[in-house]
Each structure stands twice: as structure tokens, then as C-alpha cells.
Nucleic acid binder design. Structure first.
Length: 495
RNA sequence: GGCCCGUUCGUCUAGCGGUUUAGGACAUCGCCCUCUCAAGGCGAAGAUCACCGGUUCGAAUCCGGUACGGGCUACCA
């Protein structure tokens, strides 16, 4: 509600399909999406595939899939269409050509015939002289227009460069997170907007697109801040209004270095496959650099979409903390409805583990399993380890050495098991439920004159193999009467 | 080399000149609950607000410089 309704906010996320969608990109996408939703604006997805050598159709699909998994629905873009298409840069080449030629005709851009070798030599020379400016020397800027055109017509290789006006003075970038950032236009290169192979450069294509698509707020990575004054020059040459910029910081690995493979998972896919919930992942990423109040940690996407605002975005880089992601994921998992958890988490995970096709037990059993395991999971796949003891045969049950030593190979353990057998046998198949089991087991410690732990833990280890499991009633119920009795019996030899 | 950005507990952050003995969350540790493990509840520890100067009655908050980290300076995006 604090967002000023500029009525017509238009933002875009424009990934290059040169790889998977990584977490930094995902966060940029989330911020754009959230800003659009919070302001009632339009969220556009555009594929910046001007780099033909590195862009692939497959990567595009991977990115679209990741966007869908994240739940970031776009109003315009691939598959969604829209009035400002096409939404692939490779399909917009004519537009860039047209714009560039117009700029040349208007004297706002010019042909450059310098070879890469010459440019490198110039740069080297500037360095030798200790020149403070080591960029393009504007060699071709003053070539007579007709002469230049003649050389182009003769087929001489050339690029097109933007002409930074001599009297431009300071370029002030209005940035929603950094404030006003001032650059001296004299420091700016007459940078290349069209390559000699006839393709546009990023700094040009982006601006042409953003201008044509009516983008009002450019929310993107910090690494573009230094390029922004150059882009402003292009907007001005084009005669288009400059949007508001918002440059967000990078996401770093635990060592404070740029996030890379050696930090573990870097792509959205990997997190999805690792069992993170989309909602939790979006929540965590949104919070990495944005805080609505400094108090909240669990912020449902609805709230993000309602409250996101650029003036609460922090300027400094953030280190990705998997522990906190796990915590948030656990929160979402625990908050799930039991039925949903059973259907969306438990059954798929058990199936994926090859444990259970969903038909080996009745509905009540699966629901009980959810009740037992859900609060003990932080990741979806945790249920597999939780449930493992239910899916191994009695003979193959793996006993944890320490647990056996501590609970079974102890004075009184055998008595506890004997007593448990005796008590449990009195329960028929029909009465095999948590309440009945606990009722029958509860009196044992007192009767045996032993602590509760000394009685229940041997039973637990006997049935589970380890010292940790849900409540004894739930544990035995899930196992089933026959297996429970067999395992208790079987453990007597270890006691 | 030049230009630009950043710097509050280990981590993410709140803070926008006095309400601050710098608040919250994760992680850590302790206690409670308890048949175990989780969950939950309570609590502890943890930041001389990078450093140095300045402005001000008063600065984490404003200004300058320094250090460290990062980005741009490409016919990459």
C-alpha cells in the first residue's frame, strides 16, 4: 500500500539463455515480479539471446521452467504474448538495425572503421602514456559522413558507435536503491552499438527494447550500474525517456566470494531437485536484500507481492546462507495441511525412494505417517530417512551400533523387551493404534521399577534400529503389529 | 591506471540526527517440555555500527579522507 501507483509500471526480467537460471538471476526476477504485483504493473519476460554462440533453445526452456517453478507468472513474454513483442531479441534484429541507422542519419552515432588490432594498440599506447582515459580515442568520430557512407558502401568492415555529446556534462542516474549516482560524460566511451558482423551489442539492444517496450523501472544486477550512464546516452539519442533504475547487489558464497559451483548449488533447478519448496525458496531469496520490517522471516509470496517496495532493498551484497533457507523450508513444510503433505510430499518421496507405490497401506496409515514425520522434516526428502525402518525387512533391519550399546546391551533391557512383548500381545490387530499401544506400555516402567527411558528406548531401538523416532505409539502403529512383535523378539538376543 | 558502488552481531537484516544500554531472524549454547529425535516455549552469548577526521548541544544515521571488497572501463551479457 505504500507503493505509489505510477498507474503504469512496466518492468522486465531479461535473462540470457546462456545457462541455467542461477540464484542471483532468480532474485532479480522475484524483485521485478514482486514490484509489478505490488504496484499493479506489468511484468514482462524477455529473452536476451543476442549472443548466438552461447544462447540455446534448451537453456531458454530451462529458464522458462524455472520461472514457472518459482511461480513467477509473466504478463507478457514467451508463450504469454503481448502487444510489445516479439519477446526474443533474435527476432527483433530489424528493430535494432533500424534504430541504429536512424541514429547514424541523425548524427547521433557514426561508423567506425578501426580494426580490433588498432584499438588494442591505442589502448596500449594510452596505458604507456599513463593516460587517465584508456578507452576509445574517437578516431572515426569526425570522418565526413559522406566519406564514411562511401566506405561502408564499398564493403569496408565497420562498427557503429554512439556519439556521446561533447556538451553532455554530468550524467545523473536516478537509482531507487543507490540514490543519485553521478558520472562525468567525458569519461564515457563512444561505445559500439553495432558489431561489424551486423549484430547489436547488449547495451544497445537492451535500451532499444526497454524503450520500445515502455519499461518504467529497470531492476537488475549491480554489475550494470557502471554501464547505466552509457545506456542513458542511448536513451537520450533515441529520444526516449529514461526509466528509473534499481541496481541490486550480488549474492555471494559463504566465503564472501562470488557464488560459484564450489559453493554447491547455484541454479534454481538444483534447489528444486534438492527438495526445496518453491514458496520457501522464493521467500528466502526475497529476504536476501529486502526486508519489509526487519522482524519477519516467514513472508508468504502473497505478502511479498503486496508489500514489496524498492526503498527497502539493501545496497550491500548478501551471502547465501543455506541454514536459513532450510529453516524457512521447514517452516513451510510444517505449515502444510496434512492431506497436502501426504499427497505432495510423503507419497512422491516414498515412491521416488522405491519404498512405496502408495497402495501398500490405507489412507489412515499414510496420514499417520505424515503426522509422525512432517514436524521432523526440514526438506521433503527427509521423510525418506524418517520412514526407512518401515520399509526394510525385519531380518535386514540395520541397527545403529551406538544405540544398541547404549540401550539394548544394558541391564534390564531384556526385561523391558519381555514385558513389552507380553503387554503388546494382548492387543489384537484391531486395537493396534497409538493410544492403545501407549496405554498398554505406560504402566511398564513403574511395574519394572525402571525409568521410562530404560523401558521405551530398548523397544524403540528394537523396532527402528536407532535411538530416534516419533512417539513410541506412532512408531509401533506404523510398523504394524506383526513386525513390531517380531522385531522386539529378535532384539532380545542383543539385549 | 581512471570512473563507480559497497562496509551494522558468524550470516540475513532493522535503523533514515535525540525514543538505542543498537532491535529481530538464522546459526550457536543453556533451560523447560519429554520415552528418544524433532517441533514448541523460555533464556544466554554475540556488533566499540570498517577506520580516521569534520559538522552538530547530540551521529550507526550528514560531510570528507583512508583501508578493504566489488563492478565497469570488450566488436560479453
Amino acid at each position: 500500500m505504500t507503493n505509489t501507483n505510477d498507474a503504469q509500471v512496466r518492468v522486465r526480467f531479461a535473462p540470457s539463455p546462456t545457462g541455467k537460471l542461477h540464484v542471483g538471476g532468480a532474485r532479480t526476477a522475484i524483485y521485478n515480479w514482486a514490484f509489478a504485483r505490488a504496484t499493479g504493473g506489468t511484468f514482462i519476460l524477455r529473452i536476451d539471446d543476442t549472443d548466438p554462440t552461447r544462447s540455446t533453445e534448451e537453456n531458454t526452456q530451462v529458464i522458462l521452467r524455472a520461472m514457472r517453478w518459482l511461480g513467477l507468472d509473466w504478463d507478457e513474454g514467451p508463450e504469454a504474448g503481448g502487444d510489445y513483442g516479439p519477446y526474443f531479441q533474435t527476432e527483433r534484429l530489424g528493430l535494432y538495425r533500424e534504430a541504429a541507422e536512424r541514429l547514424v542519419a541523425e548524427g547521433r552515432a557514426y561508423y567506425c572503421f578501426c580494426t580490433p588490432e588498432q584499438l588494442a594498440a591505442d589502448r596500449e599506447a594510452a596505458k604507456e602514456r599513463n593516460d587517465t582515459f584508456q578507452g576509445y580515442q574517437r578516431t572515426c568520430r569526425d570522418i565526413d559522413a559522406s566519406e564514411a557512407q562511401a566506405r561502408v558502401d564499398a564493403g569496408e568492415p565497420h562498427t557503429i558507435r554512439i556519439k556521446v555529446p561533447d556538451d553532455r556534462g554530468d550524467v545523473v542516474v536516478r537509482d531507487a536503491v543507490h540514490g543519485e549516482v553521478t558520472f562525468n560524460a567525458r569519461e564515457l566511451d563512444d561505445f559500439i552499438i553495432f558489431r561489424s558482423d551486423g549484430t547489436p551489442t547488449y547495451n544497445f539492444a537492451t535500451v532499444v527494447d526497454d524503450a520500445l517496450m515502455g519499461i518504467t523501472h529497470v531492476i537488475r544486477g549491480d554489475d550494470h550500474l557502471s554501464n547505466t550512464p552509457r545506456q542513458v546516452i542511448v536513451y537520450e539519442a533515441l529520444g526516449a525517456p529514461t526509466p528509473t533504475f534499481a541496481h541490486i547487489s550480488m549474492i555471494l558464497g559463504a566465503d564472501g566470494k562470488k557464488l560459484s559451483k564450489r559453493h554447491g548449488a547455484t541454479s534454481v533447478e538444483e534447489y528444486r531437485d534438492a527438495g526445496y519448496l518453491s514458496d520457501a525458496f522464493v521467500n528466502y531469496l526475497a529476504l536476501l536484500g529486502w526486508a519489509p520490517d526487519g522482524e519477519s522471516t516467514v513472508i508468504p509470496r502473497k505478502r511479498i507481492a503486496r508489500e514489496f517496495s524498492l526503498d527497502h532493498v539493501s545496497k550491500n551484497p548478501a551471502i547465501m546462507d543455506p541454514k536459513k533457507l532450510d529453516f524457512i523450508n521447514g517452516e513451510y513444510l510444517h505449515a502444510m495441511d496434512d492431506g497436502d503433505f501426504t499427497r505432495e510430499i510423503l507419497l512422491p518421496e516414498l515412491a521416488a525412494a522405491g519404498f512405496d507405490d502408495g497402495n501398500t497401506h490405507d489412507e489412515a496409515w499414510y496420514l499417520l505417517a505424515t503426522e509422525a514425520f512432517k514436524p521432523r522434516c526440514t526438506l521433503s526428502r527427509d521423510v525418506v530417512n524418517q520412514a526407512r525402518y518401515l520399509y526394510t525387512s525385519d531380518e535386514e533391519l540395520a541397527y545403529d551400533e551406538k544405540a544398541v550399546k547404549k540401550w539394548l546391551a544394558k541391564q534390564g533391557a531384556r526385561d523391558a523387551l519381555e514385558a513389552a512383548s507380553e503387554a503388546l500381545t494382548t492387543l489384537g490387530e484391531a486395537d493396534w493404534n497409538p493410544t492403545a499401544i501407549e496405554e498398554v506400555l505406560d504402566p511398564l516402567p513403574e511395574r519394572l521399577g525402571m525409568g521410562k527411558g530404560r523401558v521405551f528406548q530398548p523397544i524403540r531401538v528394537a523396532c527402528v534400529g536407532g535411538a530416534a523416532s516419533p512417539g513410541i505409539g506412532e512408531t509401533l502403529t506404523l510398523l504394524g503389529r506383526e513386525h513390531a512383535l517380531t522385531r522386539i523378539d529378535q532384539a532380545k538376543s542383543l539385549a
